Simulated scan of single mutants.
Amino acid sequence: MSEKLLQLASFGIRRTGSPGEERTRDWIATALESAGYRLGLTAFSADTLVDPAVAIELSSKTYEGFLQWMPPISLPAPLEGSVRLSLPDNARPGDCVVRAMQGPFSAYWTDALEAEVVAAARQGAAAYLMCTETPSGSIFAYNRSVTSSDLAIPVILYARRDHDLILAAAHQKHEARLSLSATRTSVSGVSLIGARLGKGAGLVISTPMTGWFGSVAERAPGILLARQLAEAYAKASFPVWIVASSGHEIGHLGMQQVLGALAPSPEEVRLWIHLGASLGATAQDEDYPLKSVHFRMATPGIEDLVDEAFGPMALSPLDPAQMRNGETGDVLSAGYKDVLGLTGVAATFHTPVDDGAAVNTGRLEQYERALRGVIDRRFAQT
Protein backbone atom coordinates (compact mmCIF):
# COMPACT_ATOMS: atom_id res chain seq x y z
CA MET A 1 0.00 0.00 0.00
CA SER A 2 2.88 2.39 0.63
CA GLU A 3 3.55 2.90 -3.10
CA LYS A 4 -0.12 3.65 -3.76
CA LEU A 5 -0.14 6.04 -0.81
CA LEU A 6 2.75 7.97 -2.36
CA GLN A 7 0.85 8.15 -5.64
CA LEU A 8 -2.19 9.63 -3.93
CA ALA A 9 0.00 12.08 -2.00
CA SER A 10 1.57 13.28 -5.25
CA PHE A 11 -1.80 14.47 -6.63
CA GLY A 12 -1.66 17.68 -4.56
CA ILE A 13 -4.51 19.75 -3.18
CA ARG A 14 -7.65 17.62 -3.17
CA ARG A 15 -10.28 20.35 -2.90
CA THR A 16 -13.55 19.92 -4.80
CA GLY A 17 -13.10 20.76 -8.48
CA SER A 18 -9.31 20.86 -8.22
CA PRO A 19 -6.78 19.11 -10.46
CA GLY A 20 -5.99 16.94 -7.42
CA GLU A 21 -9.56 15.69 -7.32
CA GLU A 22 -9.45 14.93 -11.05
CA ARG A 23 -6.17 13.00 -10.70
CA THR A 24 -7.60 11.04 -7.78
CA ARG A 25 -10.76 10.16 -9.69
CA ASP A 26 -8.80 9.08 -12.78
CA TRP A 27 -6.56 6.91 -10.59
CA ILE A 28 -9.57 5.16 -9.06
CA ALA A 29 -11.34 4.85 -12.42
CA THR A 30 -8.32 3.18 -14.02
CA ALA A 31 -8.19 0.58 -11.25
CA LEU A 32 -11.92 -0.10 -11.40
CA GLU A 33 -11.94 -0.47 -15.18
CA SER A 34 -9.01 -2.88 -14.97
CA ALA A 35 -10.98 -4.94 -12.48
CA GLY A 36 -13.98 -5.08 -14.82
CA TYR A 37 -16.28 -2.48 -13.27
CA ARG A 38 -18.65 -0.45 -15.43
CA LEU A 39 -18.15 3.25 -14.67
CA GLY A 40 -20.68 6.03 -14.20
CA LEU A 41 -20.16 9.72 -13.42
CA THR A 42 -22.34 12.43 -11.93
CA ALA A 43 -21.36 16.09 -11.65
CA PHE A 44 -22.45 19.26 -9.88
CA SER A 45 -21.32 22.88 -10.14
CA ALA A 46 -20.22 25.03 -7.21
CA ASP A 47 -18.92 28.55 -6.84
CA THR A 48 -15.42 28.51 -5.43
CA LEU A 49 -12.22 30.52 -5.11
CA VAL A 50 -9.12 30.29 -7.25
CA ASP A 51 -5.88 30.61 -5.27
CA PRO A 52 -7.22 32.59 -2.30
CA ALA A 53 -4.33 34.35 -0.54
CA VAL A 54 -4.55 35.88 2.93
CA ALA A 55 -1.83 37.51 5.02
CA ILE A 56 -1.89 39.28 8.39
CA GLU A 57 0.94 41.77 8.90
CA LEU A 58 1.51 42.80 12.50
CA SER A 59 4.55 44.62 13.94
CA SER A 60 6.54 44.04 10.74
CA LYS A 61 5.89 40.32 10.84
CA THR A 62 3.56 38.51 8.43
CA TYR A 63 1.35 35.66 9.60
CA GLU A 64 -0.30 33.20 7.25
CA GLY A 65 -4.07 33.21 6.99
CA PHE A 66 -6.67 31.07 5.25
CA LEU A 67 -10.14 32.05 4.10
CA GLN A 68 -12.85 29.82 5.57
CA TRP A 69 -15.42 28.56 3.07
CA MET A 70 -17.41 30.50 2.08
CA PRO A 71 -16.46 34.18 1.97
CA PRO A 72 -18.95 36.91 1.05
CA ILE A 73 -19.58 37.34 -2.64
CA SER A 74 -18.28 40.92 -2.47
CA LEU A 75 -15.13 41.32 -0.36
CA PRO A 76 -15.24 44.52 1.70
CA ALA A 77 -12.75 47.27 0.84
CA PRO A 78 -11.40 47.65 4.43
CA LEU A 79 -9.54 44.35 4.04
CA GLU A 80 -7.14 45.99 1.62
CA GLY A 81 -5.10 48.00 4.11
CA SER A 82 -4.63 48.79 7.78
CA VAL A 83 -7.40 47.91 10.21
CA ARG A 84 -7.71 47.80 13.96
CA LEU A 85 -7.79 44.43 15.71
CA SER A 86 -10.29 44.19 18.54
CA LEU A 87 -12.16 41.72 20.70
CA PRO A 88 -15.89 41.09 20.20
CA ASP A 89 -16.92 43.15 23.24
CA ASN A 90 -15.09 46.35 22.21
CA ALA A 91 -15.25 46.34 18.43
CA ARG A 92 -16.12 49.39 16.40
CA PRO A 93 -17.23 49.53 12.77
CA GLY A 94 -14.40 48.64 10.40
CA ASP A 95 -12.42 46.61 12.94
CA CYS A 96 -11.29 43.03 12.44
CA VAL A 97 -12.68 41.07 15.36
CA VAL A 98 -10.44 38.41 16.89
CA ARG A 99 -12.07 35.43 18.59
CA ALA A 100 -10.60 35.25 22.10
CA MET A 101 -10.96 31.51 22.55
CA GLN A 102 -9.64 28.98 20.07
CA GLY A 103 -12.33 27.44 17.89
CA PRO A 104 -13.42 23.84 18.46
CA PHE A 105 -11.37 21.04 16.88
CA SER A 106 -14.36 19.71 14.97
CA ALA A 107 -14.77 18.76 11.32
CA TYR A 108 -17.87 20.89 10.75
CA TRP A 109 -18.61 24.58 11.06
CA THR A 110 -21.14 25.01 13.88
CA ASP A 111 -24.25 27.08 14.44
CA ALA A 112 -22.51 28.73 17.41
CA LEU A 113 -19.63 29.90 15.20
CA GLU A 114 -22.13 31.15 12.64
CA ALA A 115 -23.87 33.22 15.34
CA GLU A 116 -20.56 34.77 16.40
CA VAL A 117 -19.78 35.86 12.84
CA VAL A 118 -23.27 37.31 12.39
CA ALA A 119 -22.88 39.26 15.66
CA ALA A 120 -19.52 40.67 14.55
CA ALA A 121 -21.01 41.67 11.20
CA ARG A 122 -23.83 43.52 12.98
CA GLN A 123 -21.16 45.49 14.85
CA GLY A 124 -19.79 46.56 11.48
CA ALA A 125 -16.68 44.35 11.61
CA ALA A 126 -14.69 44.02 8.40
CA ALA A 127 -13.67 40.42 9.15
CA TYR A 128 -13.62 37.76 11.85
CA LEU A 129 -10.23 36.26 12.77
CA MET A 130 -9.95 32.95 14.58
CA CYS A 131 -7.71 29.98 15.13
CA THR A 132 -8.65 26.43 16.05
CA GLU A 133 -7.55 24.24 18.91
CA THR A 134 -5.75 21.83 16.60
CA PRO A 135 -2.97 19.69 18.11
CA SER A 136 -0.70 20.21 15.10
CA GLY A 137 -0.58 23.97 15.69
CA SER A 138 -1.29 24.58 12.02
CA ILE A 139 -4.14 26.34 10.25
CA PHE A 140 -7.36 24.31 10.38
CA ALA A 141 -10.37 24.61 8.03
CA TYR A 142 -13.97 23.61 8.73
CA ASN A 143 -16.36 21.74 6.44
CA ARG A 144 -19.23 24.04 5.49
CA SER A 145 -21.89 23.48 2.86
CA VAL A 146 -22.12 25.75 -0.16
CA THR A 147 -25.87 25.49 0.22
CA SER A 148 -25.57 27.44 3.49
CA SER A 149 -25.99 31.19 3.39
CA ASP A 150 -22.87 33.17 2.56
CA LEU A 151 -20.84 34.19 5.60
CA ALA A 152 -21.78 37.73 6.54
CA ILE A 153 -18.12 38.83 6.58
CA PRO A 154 -14.89 37.03 5.68
CA VAL A 155 -13.67 34.55 8.30
CA ILE A 156 -9.88 34.42 8.33
CA LEU A 157 -8.30 31.40 9.97
CA TYR A 158 -4.77 31.49 11.33
CA ALA A 159 -2.47 28.99 13.02
CA ARG A 160 -2.70 28.20 16.72
CA ARG A 161 1.02 28.90 17.09
CA ASP A 162 0.28 32.56 16.27
CA HIS A 163 -2.72 32.93 18.57
CA ASP A 164 -1.08 34.50 21.62
CA LEU A 165 0.54 37.31 19.60
CA ILE A 166 -2.57 38.12 17.56
CA LEU A 167 -4.81 37.95 20.63
CA ALA A 168 -2.49 40.28 22.57
CA ALA A 169 -2.62 42.75 19.67
CA ALA A 170 -6.43 42.64 19.77
CA HIS A 171 -6.44 43.30 23.52
CA GLN A 172 -4.29 46.37 22.87
CA LYS A 173 -6.33 47.40 19.81
CA HIS A 174 -3.26 47.44 17.57
CA GLU A 175 -3.39 48.18 13.87
CA ALA A 176 -2.68 45.33 11.46
CA ARG A 177 -2.43 45.20 7.71
CA LEU A 178 -4.58 42.55 6.07
CA SER A 179 -4.36 41.47 2.47
CA LEU A 180 -6.85 39.17 0.83
CA SER A 181 -6.97 38.28 -2.83
CA ALA A 182 -9.10 35.68 -4.57
CA THR A 183 -10.92 35.14 -7.83
CA ARG A 184 -14.39 33.64 -7.75
CA THR A 185 -15.25 31.03 -10.32
CA SER A 186 -17.42 27.96 -10.82
CA VAL A 187 -16.01 24.43 -10.75
CA SER A 188 -17.40 20.97 -11.31
CA GLY A 189 -17.25 18.28 -8.68
CA VAL A 190 -17.48 14.87 -10.33
CA SER A 191 -18.32 11.68 -8.43
CA LEU A 192 -17.54 8.21 -9.72
CA ILE A 193 -19.40 4.95 -9.27
CA GLY A 194 -18.15 1.59 -10.48
CA ALA A 195 -20.56 -1.35 -10.77
CA ARG A 196 -20.32 -5.10 -11.32
CA LEU A 197 -23.42 -7.20 -11.84
CA GLY A 198 -24.31 -10.22 -9.77
CA LYS A 199 -27.15 -12.13 -8.17
CA GLY A 200 -29.26 -10.90 -5.30
CA ALA A 201 -28.71 -7.90 -3.06
CA GLY A 202 -25.17 -6.56 -3.16
CA LEU A 203 -22.33 -4.65 -1.56
CA VAL A 204 -21.66 -0.89 -1.72
CA ILE A 205 -18.31 0.56 -0.65
CA SER A 206 -18.13 4.35 -0.59
CA THR A 207 -15.48 6.91 0.28
CA PRO A 208 -15.00 10.64 -0.35
CA MET A 209 -12.22 11.88 -2.65
CA THR A 210 -12.04 15.53 -1.57
CA GLY A 211 -11.05 17.53 1.48
CA TRP A 212 -9.10 20.52 2.69
CA PHE A 213 -5.51 20.95 1.50
CA GLY A 214 -3.75 17.71 0.52
CA SER A 215 -5.82 15.67 3.02
CA VAL A 216 -3.55 12.66 2.46
CA ALA A 217 -3.96 10.91 5.82
CA GLU A 218 -7.59 11.99 5.90
CA ARG A 219 -8.68 10.73 2.47
CA ALA A 220 -6.05 8.31 1.12
CA PRO A 221 -6.75 5.43 3.56
CA GLY A 222 -10.41 5.23 2.55
CA ILE A 223 -9.52 5.49 -1.13
CA LEU A 224 -6.86 2.78 -0.82
CA LEU A 225 -9.17 0.43 1.08
CA ALA A 226 -11.98 0.97 -1.42
CA ARG A 227 -9.62 0.07 -4.25
CA GLN A 228 -8.29 -3.01 -2.45
CA LEU A 229 -11.79 -4.26 -1.70
CA ALA A 230 -12.99 -3.49 -5.24
CA GLU A 231 -10.25 -5.70 -6.62
CA ALA A 232 -10.80 -8.41 -3.99
CA TYR A 233 -14.54 -8.72 -4.77
CA ALA A 234 -14.43 -8.04 -8.52
CA LYS A 235 -15.50 -11.63 -9.25
CA ALA A 236 -17.99 -12.02 -6.41
CA SER A 237 -21.32 -13.69 -7.17
CA PHE A 238 -23.20 -10.73 -5.69
CA PRO A 239 -23.35 -7.20 -7.18
CA VAL A 240 -20.66 -4.72 -6.08
CA TRP A 241 -20.76 -0.93 -6.33
CA ILE A 242 -17.81 1.35 -5.54
CA VAL A 243 -18.61 5.02 -4.89
CA ALA A 244 -15.92 7.75 -4.88
CA SER A 245 -17.74 10.99 -4.07
CA SER A 246 -16.84 14.64 -4.57
CA GLY A 247 -17.80 17.67 -2.48
CA HIS A 248 -17.13 16.24 0.99
CA GLU A 249 -15.93 19.50 2.54
CA ILE A 250 -18.73 21.61 1.05
CA GLY A 251 -21.81 19.67 2.11
CA HIS A 252 -21.38 16.13 0.74
CA LEU A 253 -22.84 17.32 -2.55
CA GLY A 254 -21.41 14.41 -4.50
CA MET A 255 -22.71 11.74 -2.14
CA GLN A 256 -26.16 13.29 -2.11
CA GLN A 257 -26.17 13.33 -5.90
CA VAL A 258 -25.03 9.70 -6.10
CA LEU A 259 -27.77 8.66 -3.69
CA GLY A 260 -30.32 10.45 -5.84
CA ALA A 261 -29.11 9.32 -9.26
CA LEU A 262 -26.67 6.40 -9.48
CA ALA A 263 -26.81 4.35 -6.32
CA PRO A 264 -28.77 1.09 -6.15
CA SER A 265 -32.01 1.20 -4.17
CA PRO A 266 -32.01 0.15 -0.50
CA GLU A 267 -33.72 -3.11 -1.48
CA GLU A 268 -30.78 -3.96 -3.77
CA VAL A 269 -28.16 -3.52 -1.02
CA ARG A 270 -27.30 -6.14 1.57
CA LEU A 271 -24.39 -4.18 3.04
CA TRP A 272 -23.17 -0.59 2.65
CA ILE A 273 -19.70 0.23 3.96
CA HIS A 274 -18.64 3.87 4.18
CA LEU A 275 -14.92 4.53 4.62
CA GLY A 276 -14.58 7.94 6.22
CA ALA A 277 -11.70 10.05 7.47
CA SER A 278 -8.27 9.18 8.81
CA LEU A 279 -8.52 5.39 8.91
CA GLY A 280 -5.23 3.96 10.13
CA ALA A 281 -3.80 7.44 10.82
CA THR A 282 -1.91 6.38 13.96
CA ALA A 283 1.74 6.76 12.91
CA GLN A 284 2.15 10.24 14.46
CA ASP A 285 0.43 9.52 17.76
CA GLU A 286 3.61 10.27 19.72
CA ASP A 287 4.40 13.47 17.81
CA TYR A 288 1.49 15.62 18.98
CA PRO A 289 -0.30 16.21 22.31
CA LEU A 290 -3.50 14.53 21.05
CA LYS A 291 -3.53 10.93 19.91
CA SER A 292 -5.66 9.91 16.95
CA VAL A 293 -9.11 8.50 17.69
CA HIS A 294 -11.05 6.05 15.52
CA PHE A 295 -14.71 5.08 15.43
CA ARG A 296 -17.07 2.48 14.02
CA MET A 297 -20.84 2.56 13.60
CA ALA A 298 -22.91 -0.50 12.74
CA THR A 299 -26.67 -0.68 12.34
CA PRO A 300 -28.40 -3.33 14.48
CA GLY A 301 -28.56 -6.05 11.81
CA ILE A 302 -24.76 -6.27 11.48
CA GLU A 303 -23.53 -5.24 14.94
CA ASP A 304 -22.41 -8.74 15.91
CA LEU A 305 -20.45 -9.23 12.67
CA VAL A 306 -18.73 -5.89 13.11
CA ASP A 307 -17.97 -6.46 16.79
CA GLU A 308 -16.31 -9.77 16.00
CA ALA A 309 -14.32 -8.52 13.02
CA PHE A 310 -13.14 -5.24 14.53
CA GLY A 311 -12.89 -6.33 18.16
CA PRO A 312 -9.04 -6.60 18.15
CA MET A 313 -8.74 -3.04 16.78
CA ALA A 314 -10.53 -1.44 19.75
CA LEU A 315 -12.42 1.17 17.72
CA SER A 316 -14.77 3.36 19.72
CA PRO A 317 -18.41 2.50 18.96
CA LEU A 318 -20.87 5.16 17.84
CA ASP A 319 -24.61 4.91 17.36
CA PRO A 320 -26.22 6.01 14.08
CA ALA A 321 -27.31 9.38 15.49
CA GLN A 322 -23.66 10.23 16.23
CA MET A 323 -22.72 9.69 12.56
CA ARG A 324 -25.34 12.11 11.21
CA ASN A 325 -22.83 14.80 10.15
CA GLY A 326 -20.86 12.63 7.73
CA GLU A 327 -21.73 10.77 4.56
CA THR A 328 -22.68 7.75 6.65
CA GLY A 329 -25.55 9.88 7.90
CA ASP A 330 -26.57 10.61 4.29
CA VAL A 331 -26.65 6.88 3.57
CA LEU A 332 -28.76 6.17 6.65
CA SER A 333 -31.13 9.01 5.80
CA ALA A 334 -31.59 7.55 2.31
CA GLY A 335 -33.08 4.40 3.85
CA TYR A 336 -30.25 1.87 3.70
CA LYS A 337 -30.61 -0.63 6.54
CA ASP A 338 -27.35 -2.54 6.99
CA VAL A 339 -24.64 0.11 7.15
CA LEU A 340 -21.10 0.10 8.53
CA GLY A 341 -19.43 3.50 8.92
CA LEU A 342 -15.78 3.99 9.83
CA THR A 343 -14.10 7.30 10.61
CA GLY A 344 -11.39 8.90 12.68
CA VAL A 345 -9.49 12.05 13.59
CA ALA A 346 -5.73 12.58 13.59
CA ALA A 347 -3.67 15.56 14.74
CA THR A 348 -3.07 16.81 11.17
CA PHE A 349 -6.75 16.51 10.18
CA HIS A 350 -7.98 19.45 8.00
CA THR A 351 -4.56 21.14 8.05
CA PRO A 352 -1.92 21.98 5.40
CA VAL A 353 0.53 19.64 7.16
CA ASP A 354 -1.50 16.52 6.37
CA ASP A 355 1.09 15.02 4.02
CA GLY A 356 0.23 11.40 4.80
CA ALA A 357 2.94 10.83 7.39
CA ALA A 358 0.24 9.89 9.90
CA VAL A 359 -0.81 6.81 7.90
CA ASN A 360 0.20 3.48 9.42
CA THR A 361 0.09 0.94 6.58
CA GLY A 362 0.09 -1.96 9.05
CA ARG A 363 -3.02 -0.53 10.63
CA LEU A 364 -4.63 -0.20 7.19
CA GLU A 365 -3.98 -3.89 6.59
CA GLN A 366 -5.86 -4.60 9.84
CA TYR A 367 -8.80 -2.59 8.51
CA GLU A 368 -8.77 -4.56 5.28
CA ARG A 369 -8.76 -7.91 7.07
CA ALA A 370 -11.61 -6.82 9.34
CA LEU A 371 -13.64 -5.49 6.43
CA ARG A 372 -13.17 -8.70 4.48
CA GLY A 373 -14.34 -10.60 7.52
CA VAL A 374 -17.54 -8.57 7.73
CA ILE A 375 -18.22 -8.88 3.99
CA ASP A 376 -17.51 -12.60 3.81
CA ARG A 377 -19.70 -13.43 6.79
CA ARG A 378 -22.50 -11.13 5.68
CA PHE A 379 -22.72 -12.63 2.22
CA ALA A 380 -22.24 -16.17 3.45
CA GLN A 381 -25.62 -15.70 5.16
CA THR A 382 -27.46 -15.36 1.83
Rank of each mutant, 00 (worst) to 15 (best):
R25Q: 00
A120L: 04
M323W: 12
G341N: 04
P104W: 08
L5D: 06
A121R: 11
A226R: 06
L58T: 02
V293L: 13
G17T: 06
Q102M: 15
R25F: 03
E57C: 06
A309D: 02
A334H: 04
V50C: 10
G280S: 06
N90I: 07
N325M: 13
S179N: 10
T132F: 09
V374T: 05
V353A: 05
A168M: 12
V306I: 07
P154H: 05
R99M: 15
A357S: 15
S136F: 02
G17S: 09
A127H: 02
E114P: 09
G214P: 09
L129K: 03
A357C: 11
M209T: 04
V54P: 02
G65N: 06
I242V: 07
H294F: 13
M209F: 00
A55H: 06
K199G: 12
A283T: 11
A309K: 04
D307W: 13
T147A: 15
I193R: 01
T361M: 11
T48D: 10
G202I: 07
L79A: 08
L203W: 01
L271A: 05
R378M: 15
S148N: 15
G251M: 04
W69M: 11
I13L: 14
T134E: 11
A115K: 14
L197I: 13
G137H: 01
A107I: 10
G12N: 05
T16P: 02
F140Q: 05
A347E: 04
P104Y: 06
L253H: 07
T328I: 09
A182Q: 03
V258E: 03
L342N: 03
V269N: 00
G103P: 08
R296A: 10
D164M: 12
I250F: 05
A159G: 03
P104V: 12
T132V: 15
W69S: 11
D51W: 08
